[in-house]
């Protein structure tokens, strides 16, 4: 039995296989509509989420399976003081697979110690979010057709942005990747990501505070939201939340085939007028996320 807590729990071969399955689902959805019949997915969301939870649920429903679960800690037994381990143990008697989001980092790993069914980490605090990374990878695959030889800019909250950390980790396994980190000093990419991942693999990277200067060289621009829920200090959040706003004038020097990504939800960091730009790929990521979650559920259920 396999759990997916971090993108590195999946080998490059497994990711390639998931992408191939997702592409096949896109081509022929009917072929997969009963593949998880009589299987149940439990979505245990101890922290509110719209996209990820609905994406998992839509993925399971499109595979012909059923969904049970809860969408906030207040509607689960954790509000009565139940531990994550006990909740997961109990749910394991009801469901065949669990997708779990929790505000505490490492909560899904704690759950794996007692779980008899596969667990997918659907986000644990500011730590990992592997299925968002799978959505990002399918988007890059569909938009760029390759994972090698890309200059990828990450902009905004690079400190708490778990999607950034996971994607950097995933890209570190490919060749010819150059990273550009655009952030205020307070939200820079953590040192351990640099020392443990980037410098170990020798990926070239630069850090800057302005996006305009680096825009012409980017193949991908990955925007992020400054996440208020990760701040202990409200004043810091208010000061930093509008630090970067992508507007059409900032794209004037960008490549014609730039791929603009964002894990969503967006607040102010991408102007609505960009949505019409063919380079905007953030809503495609949402769709791709569902296909990759379908592929992942199938894989973890043994091809269902």
């Amino acid at each position: 039995m396999k759990h997916v807590l971090d993108i590195t729990d999946l080998s490059i071969e497994e990711i390639d296989s998931l992408i191939a399955t997702a592409m096949d689902i896109i081509k022929d959805k009917e072929k997969y509509q009963d593949i998880c019949k009589r299987k149940k997915l439990a979505t245990l969301f101890f922290e509110p989420s719209t996209r990820t939870r609905l994406s998992f649920e839509a993925a399971m429903l499109e595979l012909g399976g059923s969904v049970i679960g809860f969408s906030s800690a207040s509607s689960s037994s954790s509000s009565k003081g139940e531990s994550v381990s006990d909740t997961v143990k109990v749910v394991g008697y009801y469901a065949d697979i669990i997708a779990m989001r929790h505000p505490k980092e490492g909560a899904p790993m704690a759950a794996t110690a007692v779980s008899d069914v596969p667990i997918i980490n659907a986000g644990d605090g500011g730590h990992h979010h592997p299925t968002q990374t799978l959505a990002d990878l399918l988007t890059i695959h569909r938009e760029k057709g390759r994972f090698n030889n890309l200059t990828v800019g990450f902009c905004g909250d690079l400190k708490f942005g778990r999607t950034v950390h996971s994607l950097v980790n995933a890209l570190s396994r490919y060749t010819g990747i150059k990273l550009v980190f655009i952030s205020p000093d307070e939200l820079k990419i953590p040192q351990y990501i640099k020392t443990d991942i980037i410098e170990k693999t020798g990926m070239p990277y630069v850090e800057t505070r302005t996006m305009e200067s680096v825009m012409p060289e980017l193949d991908i621009l990955y925007m992020t939201r400054v996440q208020g829920e990760r701040f202990f200090n409200e004043a810091d959040y208010i000061r930093l939340r509008d630090y970067y706003i992508l507007t059409p004038d900032k794209l004037e020097n960008a490549k014609k085939d730039l791929c603009i990504m964002h894990p969503l939800p967006r607040v102010n960091e991408i102007a609505r007028s960009i949505d019409k730009d063919p380079r905007a790929c953030y809503f495609k990521q949402v769709e791709n996320g569902k296909y990759m979650r379908m592929a992942l559920i199938m894989m973890l259920l043994g091809g269902a």
């Binding site: 531990s83 994550v84 381990s85 929790h102 505490k104 490492g106 704690a110 500011g126």
Partner: peptide, 13 residues
């Protein structure tokens, strides 16, 4: 020491 870590709340971990 990370206050966001599950070990700060989960019993007997």
């Amino acid at each position: 020491k990370n206050p966001r870590c599950i070990t700060s709340t989960e019993q007997e971990l």
